[in-house]
């Protein structure tokens, strides 16, 4: 872990001004921000750990706990909301058994809501691992979840 952190930091010439991009790279590498890695960043950059903790807890994009293999995000912006984003959120909560901001116990899925992804014409949007899926419906989301490896039991006949 130490070598990897060092490598990431040297990419930015150990410049404190790049703390956020450094943390982004650390998160990409380890899928979340492990405490140990942050302590290494603190030492290498000569930034107090309290400062790094502030930044890491300020931005929603950073997670101090492990994330799932797949990231699902429902847009709950106004346009998506009026087109049923709430139903979609409820449905995914029920299927995955987790609330927004949480990660399933088997570390397969993380689920979040976001206030707008800027694709309002395609609402409601379900973002899965960075890909936007527009005009989302409950049954379309079931298909998507199945594709990602989640067993979905539905009342509908397939």
């Amino acid at each position: 872990m130490e070598d990897k952190v060092r490598e990431i930091i040297s990419k930015y010439d150990s410049d404190k001004a790049f703390l956020v991009p450094i943390l982004q790279d650390v998160q990409k590498e380890f899928n979340h921000l492990p405490h140990k890695a942050l302590h290494r960043v603190s030492v290498f950059l000569d930034v107090p750990i309290s400062r790094i903790y502030e930044v890491a807890t300020f931005y929603k994009a950073f997670s101090l706990t492990p994330r799932g293999d797949h990231q699902l995000t429902v847009c709950i912006g106004t346009a998506c909301h009026v087109r049923g984003a709430q139903n979609l959120t409820d449905h995914i909560e029920r299927i995955l058994g987790i609330k927004p901001g949480e990660t399933s116990g088997d570390l397969k899925f993380s689920f979040d809501t976001v206030n707008c992804v800027g694709a309002c014409a395609l609402g409601p949007i379900l973002e899965a691992d960075g890909d936007y899926h527009g005009k989302m419906t409950i049954s379309k989301s079931n298909k998507l979840l199945k594709k990602l490896g989640k067993k979905v039991v539905t009342d509908e006949e397939d």
Binding site: P48, R51, F58
Partner: peptide, 8 residues
């Protein structure tokens, strides 16, 4: 700098 803010 032992303490800081958390969250927002």
């Amino acid at each position: 700098s032992a303490i800081g803010y958390e969250g927002r």
